[in-house]
Simulated assay, not measured.
Amino acid sequence: MSIAESTPTPRHIPVALSSASVYPLSVHDAFAVAADLGFDGVEVMVTNNSTSQKADELVHLAERYEQPIVSIHAPTLLLTQQVWGSAWNKISQSCRMALDVGCDTVVVHPPFRWQGSYAETFSQGVRDLAEAFGVHIAVENMYPWRVRGRETLAYLPHWDPIGQGYQDITWDFSHAATARMDSLAALKALGDSIRHVHLTDGSGRSFRDEHLVPGQGTQRVGECLAHLAGNGFEGAVVAEISTRKARGAGDREHLLAQTLDFARTHLGQQAGVEAV
């Protein structure tokens, strides 16, 4: 057998679009933009928008635009406190939806310290739910809250997933910049527990979560993607940039096309389609 025949073909890492990247446009718009630009799929962030909460409507959009759903982002933001009831129910419902739409990854944020028993039992609880539903519950890295320059302990067990014993982790480069972390060092430390990536960037100059186009901040995003591509990464890379200041659809699609091309380039894939 030749060397070429014995060498496994590198996995194609899907580059998907988060529905959060087209906010304040709709989930429908996210699928349409993803198809137009040549993304490999969509991550649906469950919000107050009714379509984001209905598996049958999401499946219809995925089939119409030929954009598979790669992940469900549970409604764990402060703005979605009324969606799907209690904290544990939010995650359970997200796991059910993931199965209903044909994906196996659910993104969640670590609990706030004031969420009582949910926060205290979170690490074991997500492990139990992941096993029960047969999905990956990927806990996202966050960042410290700061008031007048002083750090406030907002998350339990911590905003930093390193050392918390999570089986699966989502890495967000903007959050890392706000926390003033070195993403490349963190990815190497976390190893195979990295299941999912939110592709973005941040300057780290303030306490704001910026969600810049990758390459416009201080994180070594390109090196991180190359590292993942060369180390058997089994998840998806999801563009999650802020396009709220875009003046129109053309500007928004240009920013998203830049993000897609950045991913393709640094993952060693063919460049995507640029917006005109």
Rank of each mutant, 00 (worst) to 15 (best):
I72S: 00
N141F: 04
V135T: 09
I91H: 00
G102R: 05
S92Y: 02
D104K: 07
S174P: 07
T76Y: 01
K188T: 11
L99C: 13
E120G: 00
R180H: 12
Y155R: 01
T170M: 01
T170W: 03
W88V: 06
E131K: 14
R148H: 15
L184A: 05
F112W: 10
A176N: 10
T170C: 13
Q81I: 13
P144H: 01
V126H: 01
L78P: 12
M97R: 03
W114L: 12
Q82E: 15
M97G: 03
N89Q: 14
Q115T: 08
Q81A: 15
R96T: 13
L99K: 15
S123T: 15
H73Y: 09
W159P: 07
L153N: 08
A176Q: 10
A176C: 10
A179E: 05
L99F: 09
G134I: 03
S123A: 14
L77S: 13
A186Y: 07
G85T: 06
Q81E: 15
L156I: 06
L129Y: 09
V106N: 04
T178Y: 03
V107I: 14
D100V: 07
T170D: 00
S183T: 05
N141Q: 04
I169T: 00
D104L: 01
A119R: 11
Q115M: 15
G134C: 04
V107M: 08
Q115H: 07
L129E: 05
